[in-house]
Design a protein around this nucleic acid. Structure first.
Lengths: 328, 328
DNA sequence: TACTGGAGTGCAAACGTTTGCATGAGAGCG
DNA sequence: CGCTCTCATGCAAACGTTTGCACTCCAGTA
């Protein structure tokens, strides 16, 4: 059906081996200039496309990297996908995407399809999954705020991010500062939570939590309204992420609360949406460009030299001050 | 290095053919119950994982589908990716993602890696790309508002969407209604534009355009401000998409214009962000769930029976009325 | 008893590459 | 002329599956 190197070989009058050496690039320097040209031309004319399965079978490489995402709901995640895909593409890899949030089982058939895995956030933390990966020795880079330190990883230091957020709120005069978080993230060794607690205690203040059942805007909005009705208005709210911050913003608006004079609000992650609200939100921006680039770089290094020791980087997020914390 | 069917065959005391029949599932019914069990057990014990390259080589199938996205910036695109990945996963396929916006060249090496392609929006319209696909006879489903009708496709009828938007604006009393669009989309046979023009002329009104250099919020905001300063305030604005609508909202707010009393605003696509603004935006919601599901279904059908005739569906978007067009 | 048929299994040939090793032809040198 | 060395190429064995065909039993039937 499709064109093979044999057909090209026949047409040019050389052996398949020669054609392979020219077209795969691996042995092109061994072949004479004139033969090389004739092979390229024949390949062009016949519309040759290499059979990648056959190539993989013998080389053991696929040229594909899997990107495991813990979720894929928001523009934040879209941005990660975009950046990773872009960098992988530049390095000649294709990107296989796999979203963990709606998995039927833990077993993944397609591991043999990829040369390595980039895992964002918790995608890879399930002990069962992690053990499987270890057993099969799949090159893996974990990245994001919630990272697996047993393997190569690029972390975002959101402990520090949370500390910055709280300190900023203290500076603009807040004393009662609440932390808005979803029920799940509350316990999972969450660095934001730890940073918040740490900064509050350092300031001699009592931490308090507003807990929403999930990370959706709607639930965040609801949770904030309930909380305010029961416990009164805090001076400031630090939110687990920007999505929840937008929910909080929404909830406060429904209550007729004025930002930033009555409540100061800080989000986390740095998505574009918080910038376009009537009162743009102060946030902690994650350096996603750097993270994605570094993660791809780590993986590539690992693929080239499997035996090198563990690669690790921690990136600092940056406080971006906007109207939601700027009091007159 | 890794476990093969030969090793399993040896351990169980049968031929590789038998093992293959059991584990691939393709010939399992031919094999006796007891042998089948022994093979499964041995495979389990040895931690067998099939070599997918070898399998692909002989079957000609890969179990991977490519998703071509025209862009990947917004939550709208994230949602498409998520839905497609979910449906493909359910059908046993892995998803290879490829974003067209930052391509180095038109040639794609990895076509042989996939069984078929799902292309969202303009991803596949370049004549060169389209011809290549035709030549290679890659199963292809085009989907979105801007669709390739020469192949299987699931379209969103945004001509009708735009008509609904304009009619709605007319109903709430607008006469001067402008269309906010980016420079590129302006000419590309854009259905929104055509629908807008059609509805305006049907109402005996003159179309007018606000043109931004690109689809970004920032440029949309700027374009609207410039336009208003030069030509005065229209009664209503229909925006090419929600991102631009948010930009317009932002621009109008900077001008101190009040929504919806001074200007009524309608977006397009139906992303979540427009719902959480201080004045939630009326929009035209695309039925993405249905689109993605249908697209996957079409592709599957095509893969099962390559010779069937062209599959086509057109879905109607839905007007979602919110505060930005509800005058008191 | 001889024949038919089906159930269970094995043999061996693909599938399209890559690559270690061998080969042959010249060229350069003494 | 004979030797060595390099350059360009070919040979053939992998890589791990799947699958058409053939074979062997054994039970059922005439």
């Amino acid at each position: 059906m499709s064109v093979t190197i044999k057909q090209i070989a026949q047409r040019v009058g050389v052996s398949p081996a020669t054609v392979s050496r020219v077209l795969s690039g691996r042995g092109a320097h061994l072949i004479s200039e004139s033969t090389r040209q004739r092979v390229w031309q024949a390949a062009e004319e016949l519309g040759y496309q290499p059979n990648l399965a056959a190539r993989s079978l013998v080389t053991g490489r696929t040229g594909v990297v899997a990107l495991w995402m813990s979720q894929l709901y928001t523009s934040f995640h879209a941005r990660v996908v975009q950046l990773v895909e872009e960098h992988l593409h530049q390095q000649g890899y294709d990107t296989l995407i796999r979203c963990i949030s709606h998995l039927s089982g833990t077993a993944w058939h397609g591991m043999g399809r990829v040369d390595g895995i980039l895992a964002h956030e918790g995608a890879v933390h399930l002990p069962k999954v992690w053990r499987t990966l270890q057993r099969r020795r799949v090159p893996l880079v974990s990245m994001g705020a919630y990272v697996l330190t047993e393997t190569d990883h690029v972390g975002i230091d959101l402990f520090h991010g949370a500390v910055q957020a709280v300190q900023h709120l203290l500076e603009v005069g807040c004393r009662r500062i609440a932390y808005l978080v979803n029920a799940e993230s509350r316990y999972a060794g969450d660095a934001r939570r730890d940073g918040y607690d740490h900064a509050m205690r350092a300031a001699g203040l009592a931490p308090e939590c507003i807990i929403a059942p999930d990370q959706s805007r709607a639930e965040a909005s609801l949770a904030v309204r309930r909380y305010v009705q029961e416990f009164g208005l805090p001076h400031g709210i630090f939110c687990h992420n920007d999505e929840m911050a937008i929910g909080a913003y929404h909830g406060l608006r429904l209550l007729g609360v004025h930002l930033p004079d009555e409540v100061a609000l800080v989000g986390c992650d740095g998505i574009e949406d918080t910038e376009y609200l009537d009162v743009p939100l102060t946030t902690i921006r994650q350096p996603l460009e750097e993270m994605c680039q570094l993660a791809v770089q780590f993986l590539q290094k690992r693929l080239a030299e499997p035996q090198i020791e563990r690669q690790s980087a921690w990136l600092r997020p940056k406080l971006v001050v906007r109207a939601s914390t700027q009091r007159r």
